[in-house]
């Protein structure tokens, strides 16, 4: 039988979620103390949250405020159509076309539109370039603002408190220890804090030895991590 997954929460909008009777049982939560029953922090079975999501969906459907199709469409769009492959296309173009690069740095929204990339929240996109003197990395210290238009949805670690606080305080150390990216001491590191108005993405440096690759081949080596700034693009 599948092990029940618990999720820790605090301060819910509706706090009358009773603790699951199996909480504190032998097979699931051995390592945690019994939490206070009313307020504060406590684990709830994941299925409770799943039930709340499904309940919300059906209530909103009944009220005519939503359609299942609309939700499906949003989810499918972000799962299939929008993702780092779009940003990779943009980056590859900047490597092969200096005029495009200049236009992108000047106005990322307009330049992305040239490639047919835009739409939801794309109006706040800003491209920043890595050079031999400066390495850039993006974060959202407040929540999880992210350049959705070119990168899709953020990876989980981008949303974790550990990344969001530490990358600002000790970027060089964190890049090295957590991402294996060694930025030489002489190179400046700039950390860009995204907001809903300004969503940055990084144009990584083109790796040496890729002069013979086509634009499409170049796009295939550009990773999401490189466009966040926690990795470099490597020669294939």
């Amino acid at each position: 039988m599948e092990r029940k997954r618990f999720i820790w929460i605090s301060g819910r909008a509706i706090s009358n979620m009773p603790l699951d009777s199996s909480f504190g049982g032998k097979d699931t939560m051995d390592d945690v103390a019994v939490p206070p029953p009313v307020s504060g922090t406590y684990p709830v079975p994941e299925s409770d949250i799943a039930a709340r999501v499904q309940a919300l969906e059906s209530i909103l459907l009944e009220k005519g405020l939503l359609s299942s199709d609309a939700i499906d469409k949003v989810v499918e769009t972000y799962e299939k159509d929008i993702g780092p492959m779009l940003g990779a296309k943009v980056v590859a173009r900047t490597w092969t076309n200096p005029a495009f690069r200049a236009r992108l740095l000047e106005n990322a929204v307009a330049a992305c539109k040239e490639l047919g990339i835009g739409g939801a929240q794309g109006e706040h996109l800003v491209a920043i370039e890595n050079t031999d003197k400066v390495h850039n990395v993006i974060v959202c210290t407040l929540c999880s603002c992210y350049p959705w238009t070119v990168l899709g949805l953020p990876p989980n670690w981008y949303k974790y408190p550990q990344y969001r606080s530490r990358i600002v305080i000790e970027p060089r150390k964190m890049l090295k220890e957590d991402f294996g990216l060694d930025i030489p001491d002489g190179k400046e590191i700039r950390v860009w804090d995204s907001s809903s108005e300004l969503r940055y993405f990084v144009i990584p440096e083109r790796p040496l030895g890729t002069e013979n690759l086509t634009e499409e081949e170049l796009a295939s080596i550009v990773t999401r991590e490189a466009m966040i700034g926690v990795a470099e693009v490597r020669k294939p």
């Binding site: 405020l65 989810v75 972000y78 939801a120």
Partner: peptide, 15 residues
């Protein structure tokens, strides 16, 4: 459920 909760909120914002 994660994708549904994401989809619901974004769809409500879109409309």
């Amino acid at each position: 459920w994660e994708s549904r909760s994401f989809g619901i909120a974004v769809a409500l914002c879109k409309s």
